[in-house]
């Protein structure tokens, strides 16, 4: 994974300008900004509000409503562990405890070595190969403690 780019108002302006004319452009613009920078900084909220003729509060309201949008920079990898019922039935809660202990972080946090940002997710549609996670958009299923530990070792060694 190439990782997010550092914040750049010029780059952000170009991303916003490319989509301003679309109907209901707020989410696609915010998603493109987060895709590029890894999160939505305050400066971006102001720029989106200006471009779409919305108040800052309206844009902030959208950012804060959706679980996907982040207000902090992320690590080299994003690990989304499924916590929904199908994965629960296959031991997801133990994996949740394991990953938090191994990385010494909570949900939404980034490990001290910046290797991994950990996020909860409620269903990946991998319910017949549970428990499952998404690592930088790549699905991983049939997890168990050993496989999760190996995966985390790999991530930390690589960063």
């Amino acid at each position: 994974m190439s990782g997010p780019e550092p914040w750049s108002p010029e780059r952000a302006a170009a991303i916003i300008a490319a989509r301003t004319g679309d109907a209901g452009a707020t989410l696609p613009i915010l998603q493109a900004l987060q895709e590029t920078f890894g999160y939505i900084p305050d400066a971006a909220i102001l720029m989106v509000a200006d471009a779409l003729n919305l108040t800052r509060a309206e844009v902030y309201g959208v950012v804060s409503f959706y679980h996907d949008f982040r207000r902090q920079p992320i690590g080299h990898h994003v690990l989304k562990l499924c916590r929904a019922e199908a994965c629960q039935s296959m031991g997801a809660e133990a994996l949740a405890a394991q990953v938090q202990a191994a990385l010494q972080i909570g949900w939404g946090d980034t490990s001290a070595d910046c290797a991994v940002t950990l996020e909860p997710v409620y269903c990946l549609g991998l319910c017949a190969t549970a428990p499952a996670l998404l690592l930088d958009d790549q699905p991983v299923g049939r997890l168990n403690g050993g496989r999760l530990a190996a995966l985390l070792d790999e991530l930390r060694a690589g960063s």
Binding site: G24, L27, P28, Q31, F65, Y66, D68, V121
Partner: peptide, 8 residues
């Protein structure tokens, strides 16, 4: 295509 943003 429009993509959701994690809201059930």
């Amino acid at each position: 295509v429009r993509v959701g943003a994690g809201a059930y």
